[in-house]
């Protein structure tokens, strides 16, 4: 359609500014990607990935895809990554993955495949050896969003409609998958209290964590009269994660530290006295 004008708008190099931006941000993107893959905790992976996506958004803008750049930030970084974070929270933020491989040979095979794939892909791109390109300046002449809109609602209208249907389906699907039907009436507070009494295990509310006048954090169990920690005072979740802090020996340690410090101080005083005595004696 615009074949004759292609040559006219052809360029052979980008601006120096873009080149500098590319080389800097590309490193950031790759680091982010590597972080997403190799971070032990899913949260860190998600954050690394978000960084990479923001960098990609910048690259979209640099490539003349203004609309996509914005969408990338809003939809991907803003919505999808947040969705990921929500799920990570649901599943458990702190549970770090073990990076130890369980399938024998998997890592070697994966490395080999990935390496071969990457090399081949790069070779394919290198093989294309493009010297000139057109740039989207002419296509964006009437505005990037307007250009996209005219394409979406003419040439790609069916695909667009179908993606609409896909989104509806996905939304319904997600709801169906995660929804749990409540099959019985929720118990009222009174009923639960009565049940507690019937079971006779723990009639009163659970004791609060922390030790009076010393600690009130939720991860510190309260002490029983004999000085041992009470299991009931901390959340079972924290117990399961092994995040309970034991402060029962803290008082003794503090005392020991105090004695140490005082003895240190007394020692120094004693030696000075001795010196003074020695001086006094010599006098």
């Amino acid at each position: 359609m615009i074949a004759p004008s292609l040559a006219a708008s052809a360029a052979s190099t980008t601006s120096t500014g873009e080149a500098v931006q590319f080389w800097i941000l590309a490193v950031v993107a790759v680091l982010g990607a590597l972080g997403a893959v190799f971070m032990k905790k899913a949260v860190h992976s998600a954050l690394s990935l978000a960084g990479t996506m923001i960098v990609l958004a910048v690259f979209y803008l640099a490539n003349g895809a203004y609309f996509l750049g914005v969408v990338q930030i809003v939809v991907y970084t803003g919505a999808i990554m947040m969705l990921f974070l929500f799920v990570v929270m649901l599943v458990g933020v702190t549970a770090a993955d073990s990076l130890k491989e369980t399938i024998r040979g998997q890592r070697w095979l994966a490395g080999l495949c990935v390496l071969g794939f990457g090399i081949l892909l790069m070779a394919g791109i290198a093989n294309a050896s493009l010297k000139e390109w057109n740039g989207v300046g002419r296509a964006n002449a009437g505005g990037n969003v307007e250009g996209l809109a005219s394409l979406i609602f003419t040439k790609y209208v069916f695909a667009f409609e179908i993606t609409g249907a896909l989104l509806i389906t996905a939304a319904v699907g997600a709801m169906v998958l995660t929804h749990r039907e409540r099959t019985e009436r929720a118990a009222t507070q009174r009923e639960r209290a009565e049940q507690r009494v019937r079971e006779g295990k723990q009639v009163t509310p659970l004791p609060a964590p922390g030790v009076y006048a010393r600690h009130n954090a939720v991860d510190i169990p309260g002490l029983l009269p004999d000085g041992t920690a009470s299991e009931l005072t901390v959340s079972p979740t924290l117990r399961a994660r092994g995040q309970v802090r034991d402060v029962s020996g803290e008082a003794l340690q503090d005392l020991k530290a105090l004695e140490q410090r005082s003895s240190d101080w007394l020692e120094r005083g004693r030696s000075e006295d001795a010196d003074a005595n020695a001086k006094g004696a010599s006098k």
Binding site: I103, A110, G116, G124, N127
Partner: peptide, 27 residues
């Protein structure tokens, strides 16, 4: 057929690599 999805993924990925190699070779 060890039942690990990741193992199958490696196979798929290896296959894709072979396909690319074949395409490049043909070109």
């Amino acid at each position: 057929q060890n039942g690990y999805a990741r193992s199958y993924a490696v196979s798929m990925f290896g296959g894709a690599a072979v396909l690319i190699a074949a395409t490049l070779l043909m070109r």
